[in-house]
Design a protein around this nucleic acid. Sequence first.
DNA 1: TCAAAAGTGTTTGTTATACACCCATGT
DNA 2: ACATGGGTGTATAACAAACACTTTTGA
Lengths: 241, 241
Amino acid sequence: MSEKRIISYSNAPFPPPKGIMKGLSIDNLIFGLEGSALKILLIKHGEGIAEGEWALPGGFVNNKEDLNDAARRLLKELTGIEHHYLEQLKTFGKVDRYPAERVVTVAYYALVSADNYALIAGLNACEAAWFNVHDTPPLVFDHPDIVQYGLQFLQHQVRHRPIGFNLLPEKFTLLQLQELYEAILDIKMDKPNFRRKIMKMNLLSPCNEKQQGVAHRAANLYRFDKDAYENLTEQGFTFEV
Amino acid sequence: MSEKRIISYSNAPFPPPKGIMKGLSIDNLIFGLEGSALKILLIKHGEGIAEGEWALPGGFVNNKEDLNDAARRLLKELTGIEHHYLEQLKTFGKVDRYPAERVVTVAYYALVSADNYALIAGLNACEAAWFNVHDTPPLVFDHPDIVQYGLQFLQHQVRHRPIGFNLLPEKFTLLQLQELYEAILDIKMDKPNFRRKIMKMNLLSPCNEKQQGVAHRAANLYRFDKDAYENLTEQGFTFEV
DNA sequence: TCAAAAGTGTTTGTTATACACCCATGT
DNA sequence: ACATGGGTGTATAACAAACACTTTTGA
């Protein structure tokens, strides 16, 4: 309990104790997929100035801790999710974005395969849950801005870099991939052309396995071939969907 | 002189006085074009812990000042350049990036038409000058990382958004534009094809003027039509070079 | 008249789009 | 048998790349 008070940000004493950076926080925007619906991960504060309210999982940075490490640590402590790499999204620095005192926040984002993780609310979070990205409860501070910015960023990124694969299970079908793009970009795509475009990139390796228990012809399963992508990238290939 | 001491970061007292955020700074990466060479703007510290060394123009943030405003203010105070919009690049947060104490820095960038500005070294800067982006003097702290990241970011951005025009004078020729792309991307391009690609976008409006005083056929001058770009963008157009 | 850059035309191969079609499987 | 999605083929149009060519101008 006393450790909670030190690390979580919704109830950090002002000024924070030695060892914690003042005026700088981190917030994580975690995208996941449930079925073919795009979700984000939120926590409900169990105590502190934002008690009872939903927020992005975030908090303060230790004095001797790299920003990237802090993002990873906070995500794990608050939700139980251990993700090796969070990418920086943007820093939000309006004067009055945080009540009580000036706090600038660095937003990070990641895409995870939602079903791979059991959520475990930790620290000052009394609940952690996935919400449809277009249908969240009211959020604290400027977190709605962060979500909106992050969604636009994701929509742009997903067309230019093969990040979408992180949202799917390791083995997936081409239709799952297509539905992922349709969910993120909110558009319809042509099935034959989508298949061809993806396959021509040589980024998927066949698992030589088929779907199980579906009421139609079983689709081939593929996995994303990261090595192939890195090789191609070195040769000047750029991913485009 | 006493005001210099308060605002500049190379010699800010530790801890900084009330009214200045602790542990958070801003650094600006300003690209410019001289002839067809890509340059960046550096200042030489005249005092403080980095005295005599070259650095990106940056400093600390006031407590009641938005991050974006701080970036603009610092650029003007240190170099005399007044630029209305700086875009956020990335936040650099390694533990030991700054000597003496923990400071996280938010890097901003902008592209300016170099000849439009007279440089005036201000605050703790005793000199401000343009340097070829591939041939800078040694830089303080992690500023080389920021420059490298920024250059890669620019090379990517310039292909997907019409930001390159900011580096040129208001009226420019198609060859100037092509040389700009060649300088930033470090490649050669085909003149006829480049012309056609650009003209087909309908983003340039002719000035109905020609170059003056050149020892060859005078080229038409164009200006970038921002309104046209915004209209097209709304209709789903995406800039690609 | 020559150099230097402006600017046009044409050929060729590649890629995107639309959509018709057949295949496999569980109910 | 039929619904459902898996998966293939193909015609057309748009586009990119390469490069030969003509035009204009000052020195």
